[in-house]
C-alpha cells in the first residue's frame, strides 16, 4: 500500500489543507463563542501541519515533520494559556461572548 503513495498528487494535499484552513477562517469569523474561535484556530494550525507533513514526505526530508512537532508544542502551550485567560474572562463577565469584550474600543 505504501508503494503506490506516489499516485496521490501533491496538489490534492495542498487543496485539502487549503479547504481546512478556510473552514478555520470561517469559524473565526462566523462564531461569537471564544472557545469555538480557539478551536477554529486549532483547525487552521492542523491544516498547516498537514501541508508541512505532505511537503516533507514528498521531498523525503524529515525536517518538515520535526517542524510539525514544534508547532504542536507551541499550540499546546498557547491553548493552556488561552483557556486560562478565557476562564478569567468568564469569571469577570459571566459569558464567553467575544462581542462583550469591546472595552478596548476607547
Amino acid at each position: 500500500m505504501l508503494g503506490d503513495l506516489k499516485t496521490i498528487p501533491l496538489d490534492w494535499y495542498i487543496l485539502l489543507s487549503s479547504i481546512l484552513f478556510c473552514i478555520g477562517v470561517m469559524g473565526v469569523l462566523f462564531r461569537r463563542n471564544a472557545i469555538i474561535i480557539f478551536m477554529s484556530i486549532e483547525l487552521m494550525l492542523n491544516a498547516v501541519n498537514l501541508l508541512l507533513v505532505a511537503f516533507s514526505a514528498y521531498h523525503n526530508d524529515a525536517k518538515g515533520q520535526v517542524f510539525v512537532f514544534f508547532t504542536m508544542a507551541v499550540a499546546a502551550a498557547e491553548i493552556a494559556v488561552g483557556l486560562a485567560i478565557l476562564v478569567v474572562v468568564y469569571r469577570n463577565t459571566k459569558s464567553t461572548d467575544i462581542d462583550v469584550l469591546n472595552r478596548l474600543k476607547g
Partner: peptide, 26 residues
C-alpha cells in the same frame, strides 16, 4: 492522512496530543 503519508510518529502524536490532551482541556 499522516499515516497515508508514511508519517506514523506524527499520526500517533497527533492523536495523543490533540485528540487526547488539548481536546480534553477544551
Amino acid at each position: 492522512e499522516y499515516v497515508l503519508l508514511n508519517a506514523q510518529f506524527l499520526a500517533i502524536v497527533n492523536i495523543i496530543v490533540y485528540a487526547g490532551a488539548i481536546m480534553v482541556l477544551f
